[in-house]
């Protein structure tokens, strides 16, 4: 496999972002997360903060309408730009890691796609978020729930499949079992095996 695209879906607090970045380093390929926002900002002239504000956010159904495929929702338009961007990158033959953005569904059928989903036990997620954001246990739990609800709504609105459904991904992995580093090692060997095939 000359080109390979690693799509990483993740639960909030599971370490998915760190895992994606680490995989990018190990395979020496770009990771499209923040970088995706920068590229779109450069392409459209939109402010970084503006894209960030609507990034991976579900739209408000009451305040938006779609006419002949055109939507007034800024969230929808930013999402479409990101989908278009990852499709173009995939089409160009480039290898990369992409975090979220419904990439496992938007690139479905692409021969270079390796789709992963990282989940974790709630206790482990709470511990991680408490440390990262300096939050109390209750607040960390509420924060995780809110973020995951948002990701789920975003994903399920833009795709016909359900976020986190194991049938959607080549591999779903619980990062609590092997720890973050162990999970990265395991995923690296899985990806190498896929590339060799």
């Amino acid at each position: 496999m000359e080109q390979f695209i690693i799509s990483v879906g993740r639960e909030f607090g599971s370490g998915g972002r760190h895992i994606a970045e680490e995989l990018g380093k190990r395979f020496n390929i770009p990771v499209y997360n923040r970088h995706l926002i920068t590229e779109i900002a450069e392409k459209t002239g939109l402010a970084h903060e503006e894209i960030e504000k609507y990034n991976e956010s579900p739209k408000s159904k009451l305040l938006s309408r779609t006419v002949r495929g055109y939507s007034n929702s800024i969230e929808d338009n930013i999402a479409e730009m990101q989908f278009e961007f990852i499709r173009e990158k995939a089409q160009s033959g480039e290898s990369f890691v992409v975090l979220g953005r419904c990439s496992e569904s938007k690139l479905k059928g692409h021969p270079a796609l390796i789709s992963l989903f990282v989940l974790a036990d709630m206790d482990a997620k709470i511990k991680r978020i408490m440390e990262l954001y300096e939050l109390s246990e209750d607040k960390a739990k509420a924060f995780i729930d809110k973020k995951d609800r948002k990701r789920k709504r975003y994903h399920n609105y833009h795709c016909s499949s359900h976020w986190g459904d194991s049938r959607l991904y080549d591999l779903s992995i619980n990062s609590t079992r092997l720890g973050i580093d162990g999970t990265i090692d395991h995923l690296e060997s899985y990806i190498r095996a896929r590339i060799r095939k």
């Binding site: 459209t44 939109l46 503006e50 305040l63 939507s71 007034n72 930013i78």
Partner: peptide, 24 residues
């Protein structure tokens, strides 16, 4: 409002796609 008529939706959508988002 941005959703009151089809032209509004299309106009704001085209603007957003080209890098000029128009919120409510």
């Amino acid at each position: 409002t941005p959703i009151g008529a089809s032209a509004n939706v299309v106009g704001t959508s085209i603007a957003a796609k080209k890098g000029y988002p128009i919120g409510w």
